[in-house]
């Protein structure tokens, strides 16, 4: 009898767990680690201290005001202008890369590799000194012009690759059908290929817009009047004068107001496209 009981109690232990059981145990472990991390955080972090450094209520109140609104607006203006310029220039570069003429392809490739390879902040600094390099020269819509051109030229390098891929994703039969109806190559590109290509690349281009929104913060390196401040510059200035980072945290959260809806939009567009192509 003892032999029987020993086999019945020992045998199941040695048996390997079923996959479902193992997955369940793994989930339990994950929850346990999470709970442990939270408990540790609560025990070790001094909430007061944290608030004093990052979220001082009086400074939050100080930060929020018409100037924050103007900085928010400036961020949008810098970004939008650079995006439009980048889109136009990126499309031209994409068409150059697909050109039959060799030198156009080379120029576009050199441009792309150059501006993708150097930090945007250096391009921005260089363009802000154009007035010094060429006496008498100044970008229109100062200070916006220089920023638009600098950030636009950098983002054009990225966008041109995306747009080129989009154009190449349009089936060859579309051009053949357009040409067989008597459309010229230019008209086929403009009326048939590009509208389809831009539909394909709208999600990645919106992602580019999100990146550009954040890159507009680089504007803080160039000299600006207060009217030209965007979120980061505005936040930094306040942070410096109060010797506290709270204003910069508030400014940082303001970026989310712009970027979160955009990323949500991208996700929706991608879902829609996946459904349409299925």
């Amino acid at each position: 009898m003892s032999t029987i009981s020993s086999t019945t109690t020992v045998a199941p232990r040695k048996k390997r767990l079923s996959p479902r059981k193992r997955a369940q145990r793994f989930r339990i472990v994950q929850y346990a680690v999470l709970v442990l991390a939270v408990v540790l955080a609560v025990l070790t972090i001094d909430g007061r201290q944290l608030q004093q450094v990052f979220f001082r209520p009086d400074l939050i109140v100080q930060t929020i005001g018409p100037e924050l609104g103007s900085a928010f607006l400036n961020t949008i203006i810098y970004t939008a202008g650079a995006f439009i310029l980048g889109l136009v220039l990126g499309t031209v570069l994409a068409l150059m890369k697909l050109s039959q003429v060799g030198p156009y392809r080379w120029l576009a490739t050199i441009y792309t590799e150059f501006f993708r390879g150097i930090p945007a902040i250096i391009v921005l600094l260089a363009f802000s000194l154009m007035g010094v390099a060429f006496p008498g020269f100044s970008f229109p819509f100062d200070p916006y012009g220089a920023v638009w051109v600098a950030l636009g030229m950098v983002s054009a390098a990225y966008m041109s690759e995306t747009i080129r891929a989009g154009i190449q994703a349009v089936p060859k039969g579309q051009i053949e059908a357009a040409r067989s109806l008597g459309m010229s190559p230019g008209m086929s590109m403009q009326r048939i290929v590009l509208p389809q290509a831009f539909r394909i690349v709208t999600p990645p281009l919106t992602n580019e817009l999100v990146l550009l929104t954040k890159d507009s913060s680089l504007v803080y390196v160039i000299g600006l009047f207060a009217s030209g401040y965007e979120l980061t510059k505005f936040g930094r200035n306040l942070a410096n004068s109060y010797a506290n980072i709270t204003p910069l945290v508030v400014a940082g959260l303001c970026y989310l107001v712009i970027t979160l809806p955009l990323t949500y939009l991208v996700r929706r567009m991608e879902t829609k496209q996946r459904k349409a192509t299925r």
């Binding site: 039969g173 053949e176 059908a177 040409r179 008597g182 459309m183 389809q196 539909r199």
Partner: peptide, 20 residues
């Protein structure tokens, strides 16, 4: 060529309608 092509309607195996 563009003008002459308008005199010849072409129908393709894969339709090639403009999807947009």
């Amino acid at each position: 060529v563009d003008r002459l092509r308008t005199q010849m309607g072409m129908v393709f195996q894969s339709f090639n309608l403009f999807p947009h």
